[in-house]
Amino acid sequence: VRAALCTNEFMARMAREHNDANILCLGERVVGQGLAWSMVQTFLETSFAGERHQRRLDLIELFDRR
């Protein structure tokens, strides 16, 4: 599980694209309803970029197995 706390659309996009996050966390008092829906849409439409970012995730998985 890779959860990302995001407060704007850029953070939601980067969480998916660079970290392959699969859970989007939003603060109710920080993010309004309109922005929240926009962030969810951005998060769901963004794909993991892979390549150099995959190496970092591989290291995390290796560490978790220890």
Rank of each mutant, 00 (worst) to 15 (best):
R2Y: 09
R52S: 06
A15K: 01
M39K: 03
M11P: 02
R52C: 06
R56H: 10
Q33L: 15
F48C: 00
R16D: 01
I60M: 12
A36V: 04
E17D: 12
R56Y: 10
E51V: 07
M11R: 09
Q54A: 11
N8K: 09
G27F: 07
Q33Y: 14
Q41E: 15
H18D: 03
R16A: 02
N8L: 06
L5K: 08
L44E: 11
T46I: 04
I60W: 11
L57T: 02
N19M: 07
W37M: 15
A49N: 00
E45Y: 14
R56I: 09
L59S: 10
H18Y: 11
L44Q: 13
M11V: 08
M11W: 08
G50A: 05
F43M: 02
C25I: 15
E28D: 10
V31P: 01
F10T: 14
G34M: 10
E9S: 12
E28S: 14
E17I: 09
L5E: 05
G50P: 00
F10A: 15
G27D: 03
R2H: 11
D64K: 15
R66Y: 15
S47T: 10
E28K: 13
I60Y: 15
L62N: 13
L35I: 04
A12G: 06
V40G: 02
F48H: 04
T7G: 13
F10S: 12
E51H: 12
F63C: 08
S38L: 07
Q41N: 14
H18A: 07
D20R: 15
D20M: 10
N8H: 07
R55G: 07
G32S: 06
E17T: 10
S47D: 09
D64W: 12
D64A: 15
V1Y: 13
A21I: 01
S47V: 06
L5N: 06
V1N: 10
T7F: 14
D64H: 14
A15E: 01
R56K: 10
A36P: 02
N22Q: 09
R13W: 08
N8W: 07
T42G: 04
L62Y: 13
R29S: 06
G50I: 03
R16H: 03
R16I: 01
E45P: 00
L59I: 06
L35D: 01
L44N: 11
A3F: 08
V31A: 08
A12N: 04
T42M: 10
L44R: 13
G27I: 05
R55K: 12
E17P: 02
L26Q: 04
G32C: 05
G34E: 06
G34W: 09
Q33M: 14
E45Q: 15
N22D: 08
S47N: 11
L5W: 13
D58I: 07
Q41S: 14
V30Y: 06
V40K: 05
V1F: 13
